[in-house]
Design a protein around this nucleic acid. Sequence first.
DNA 1: TCACAATTAAAACAGTCGTTTGATTGAAAC
DNA 2: GTTTCAATCAAACGACTGTTTTAATTGTGA
Lengths: 236, 236
Amino acid sequence: MIWAFPSIKLKNMSELASSARSGTQDRILAQAETLFMVHGYEATSLRLITNGAGVNLAAVNYHFGSKEELFQSVLTRRLDPLNIDRLKLLDALEAKYAPKSVPLSEILSAMFLPALQLGRDPTRGGKNFLRLLGRAYVDPAPFIRNLLSEQYAPMISRFKAAFGKALPHLSRDDLTMRLHFVMGAMAYTLAGTDALKLISTINPDEPADDSTLLRKLAPFLTAGLQAPATDSLVLV
Amino acid sequence: MIWAFPSIKLKNMSELASSARSGTQDRILAQAETLFMVHGYEATSLRLITNGAGVNLAAVNYHFGSKEELFQSVLTRRLDPLNIDRLKLLDALEAKYAPKSVPLSEILSAMFLPALQLGRDPTRGGKNFLRLLGRAYVDPAPFIRNLLSEQYAPMISRFKAAFGKALPHLSRDDLTMRLHFVMGAMAYTLAGTDALKLISTINPDEPADDSTLLRKLAPFLTAGLQAPATDSLVLV
DNA sequence: TCACAATTAAAACAGTCGTTTGATTGAAAC
DNA sequence: GTTTCAATCAAACGACTGTTTTAATTGTGA
């Protein structure tokens, strides 16, 4: 193996331009994004990706090193900018309301609006990537779990602090669990329209698009987060 | 192939007893339940299952027919009784409150209490099965999606009607979406404690067990379902 | 004890998997 | 014009996949 990651070993500007010009990396990433979304990580083979992208099988290992690193590249190239956008919005909100807490609905907006915009922008992955993200949240593969927790740790801790400030009546553990529920509802919503069939046959003429779903999700989560902290179930 | 499913071809009572006595089917089911839970369907090989169960590799195809049918057996042997319990509770509630609607928190109890009891009963799968179920909800494999929707269709439609009666202010589509969120939060909660690491480092001395999580989930969902139906996000 | 079925066992089947190798291409660099 | 090196290619690597086959073994009713 001479260079596992030739695209990283950039000596000058012309090489940067040429590596971007070739397009095989982008074709691989685009095809992998779609196939990982449809079939999941394990069930997607490199031959399926490379055939669909019209490139040689060895191109994945040459450009990305391994299948796991390809998946990581697929995820981070969209997720990094998304989380940066989220934190920028939260920064602006906290500056605006300081020293008071940011209203709950506004914190949720800071989480959702960047995802909504990304979902409507095909050049940034669009709906495909949102679904891939939702599936990644619940994938059992250890390297995906580690990848996501590293990728999300800074963003989540910032938002958790903001939520805690806006919801002073919740204990630390209660807040943790409720954020868990928020992530779950969001991940499941992103993960797939086909999962909707579980609940009911929705009107096929006007399919519930992802942006509608996300908009409907916000008031649901706001009310859930604001609920009193008492247990409502009597255990048997 | 003489008999693909010998356990189904039951000629008399003694044969039923002997097939249950052998124990290799049960050992396969137990091991498969654990491994499918930990690694997911695709990443779990039959050799991993049979080695762990201490049985011959061919035993899976002999007793269950195929890997997919093994997974189906793992799922349905727990899920069928669970959903029957849920519907029994809902029946009792509707009889008690008829002709008025069942209170929201009671409907949610009918969904959660049977799952809570199952989660605490190791002889019925316990926590392992609950996590397996949470993962199955979001597995991309088509046969798992079909399996679940068939398995859940009657239960969901009954509960959806009850929810609709208790939440008359919601349109049909809004109700559908909110039930979608409910299922998502529940699936994500069941799917894994390790997913909690995403949100925060929870106190390792007192790990949030599944029953606590489910009890905390109910007030969250109750408030979310009762939220007004207006969109709270201004789109850009 | 015999016969017959149910079950288990070892081995091979025909593929697919991710990855690596070695040769070939093509375009800059000197 | 030669050198150089990233990029691409076909081909093969060894390991693993779910499934099937064939044989041996077991347990049970006649």
